[in-house]
Amino acid sequence: MDDQQLLRYSRHILLQEIGIEGQQRLLGSCALIIGVGGLGSPAALYLASSGVGKLTLCDHDSVDFSNLQRQIIHRTGTVGQPKVVSAQSALHEINPEVECVALAIRADEAQLGELIAQADVVLDCSDNFETRYAVNRACLAQRKPLVSGAAIQFHGQVAVFDYRNDDAPCYNCLFPEDSEAEELRCATTGVFAPLVGIIGTLQAAEALKLLMGIDRGLSGKLLSINALDMNILRSSLSKDPACRTCGDITAERRVNS
């Protein structure tokens, strides 16, 4: 690191758990953020300001005026722009050293596989089950750690699935794809603006710790928050041996090992 970097990241470097070695790990890392809306906004801001070397932003949507209530990376002047372009500009102003790749696409499973293969950590900041299941499958196949977040109304949750560990539960273990869970959208049910900031920031924190090799965190756990009365619940997750997503893959890995 040069003198400017030592100054920029000095408050990280002062932390015993991070130091120069941890900061250098961040500088050499790549994070993939799926969705640059309410959750992806604070997540991207903190990953960039913390010095993650490369951020890949993937979102097919454009900035809408109604987004500005909670999607803090966007500005009134960027309404109508692709969200990834708006976010890329904001991140460059915060930390021009970070390489920011803007992909204004709805990635299919093949594209997700390619993007995830290049990332050290994946943050699922999407707003629909179809994308979450696809990202989960791709991360599992590539053995890349996944930080998943969701927020609606006053309720939010964060979970970490570290697929470098064969015994890790997957997103489908928690929310089975065939469970017919009701999918709620902010556009129809609303969402408390600071809640997405809380959840997205927690996602950034967990991603940074994964990149730096800090084991303490939410790996294999679910953190649920009710922002109306500020109840916080942390639960342990168990791998479902009958899971249709990770059960067969884990068994195959053990046979081949």
Rank of each mutant, 00 (worst) to 15 (best):
G80V: 11
V79W: 10
V52P: 03
V85F: 12
T76H: 13
S49E: 02
D64N: 10
L57V: 06
S66E: 02
D64M: 12
I72M: 07
L55R: 04
D59M: 01
V52G: 04
S50I: 00
L68P: 02
D61N: 09
N67Q: 10
H74L: 14
V84N: 06
V52F: 01
C58F: 10
H74F: 12
Q71K: 01
F65K: 12
T56G: 09
H60A: 14
V79P: 11
Y46W: 05
C58V: 15
T56F: 08
Q71P: 04
L68T: 05
V79D: 12
D59V: 02
V85Q: 14
H60T: 11
G51E: 03
G77Q: 11
D64W: 04
S49D: 01
V52E: 04
T76A: 12
D59E: 06
L45P: 03
T56Y: 07
C58L: 14
T78M: 07
Q71T: 06
L47R: 00
Q81F: 14
D64I: 08
K83Q: 10
C58T: 14
S62E: 14
F65A: 15
I72V: 09
I72F: 05
V85Y: 11
Q81C: 15
C58N: 09
I73Q: 08
V52I: 02
G53A: 06
Y46H: 05
T76R: 14
G77S: 10
R70A: 05
G53R: 09
K54A: 12
D61W: 08
S62I: 15
D61T: 10
L45W: 00
V63K: 12
P82E: 13
H60P: 14
K54G: 11
S49H: 01
C58H: 09
S62G: 11
D61Y: 08
P82M: 08
L47N: 02
K83E: 11
G77R: 10
G80L: 06
G51V: 01
S50M: 00
S62K: 12
Q69S: 08
N67I: 13
G80F: 05
S66I: 10
T56E: 13
H60E: 15
V85G: 10
S66Q: 04
S50G: 11
Y46P: 04
L55E: 14
L47C: 03
V63Y: 05
K83H: 12
V79A: 11
V85R: 14
S66A: 08
T76L: 13
S49T: 07
Q71F: 02
V79M: 12
V84Y: 10
G80W: 01
G53M: 06
P82K: 09
N67D: 15
Q69W: 03
R70Y: 04
G53D: 04
R70E: 03
G51L: 01
Y46I: 09
Y46C: 05
Q69D: 08
G80C: 09
T56V: 15
L55H: 06
Q81G: 09
V63F: 05
I73H: 07
S50E: 00
Q71Y: 01
Q71I: 05
V79R: 03
P82G: 07
Q81L: 15
L45R: 00
N67T: 13
V52Y: 02
Q81S: 14
G77L: 03
L68F: 12
S49M: 00
